[in-house]
């Protein structure tokens, strides 16, 4: 039997959840025995080359590119897992929810004290730049998500146990300390 295939991505996230995947320490050697990676920043494969079994999503959706990637993941993965608070509820990027987009962009590109080189007062509007959304969306409000691993980041132990449970098709029995929202 061929190894299960895993894909991962970071949407509107900080890569902290990916760092937490790496935080499984020496078990990473077991992981590469267990699975094969496809599209993922871990092996730097940019595009799906086959159908995958498990997709791990870090971060919520803050722009049109995030939505595109997330839908691509849904098409290519049998199981999608929201990893971390941002994927589950928008996380820190969702602090802007409730503030009009115009106000956010003005603050970021025109008014903020750190803006120095923008002499022409331009808010970036090139058509190649993904459109920013009206608010940051949790992933399960865009596509169907099968499982959720909370935490900021989710503890390495939680990610590991969840992956093993999915791959070996067995129930998860987690200690209390592992499920945290921070």
């Amino acid at each position: 039997m061929s190894k299960p295939v895993i894909a991962t991505t970071s949407l509107a996230g900080c890569f902290g959840c990916h760092m937490s995947i790496l935080d499984i320490d020496e078990k990473i050697l077991d992981l590469i025995e267990l699975v094969e990676f496809n599209k993922s920043p871990i092996d730097d494969i940019k595009h799906f080359t086959k159908q995958c079994d498990i997709g791990l999503i870090e971060g919520g959706c803050c722009n049109s590119e995030n939505i595109h990637v997330l839908r691509e993941f849904r098409e290519h993965c049998k199981i999608l897992v929201s990893v971390g608070e941002c994927a589950i509820m928008g996380g820190l990027p969702a602090f802007r929810n409730g503030i009009p987009v115009k106000e956010c962009l003005r603050e970021a590109y025109l008014l903020s004290p750190s803006v120095q080189a923008n002499h022409e007062y331009i808010i970036p509007n090139d058509e190649d730049i993904p459109m920013i959304l009206d608010k940051v969306y949790p992933c399960h409000e865009i596509v169907k998500i099968d499982y959720f691993l909370p935490g900021c980041p989710p503890r390495a132990e939680l990610i590991w146990e969840a992956l093993v449970a999915l791959i070996k098709n067995r129930p998860m029995d987690l200690p209390y300390e592992v499920i945290k929202f921070d």
Binding site: E85, M89, G91, L92, A94, F95, N97, G98, C152, F181, D182
Partner: peptide
């Protein structure tokens, strides 16, 4: 509400 646990002083 807006319960952002990772950024909350009361978390834990």
């Amino acid at each position: 509400g807006n319960h952002f646990c990772p950024a909350c002083e009361k978390s834990g």
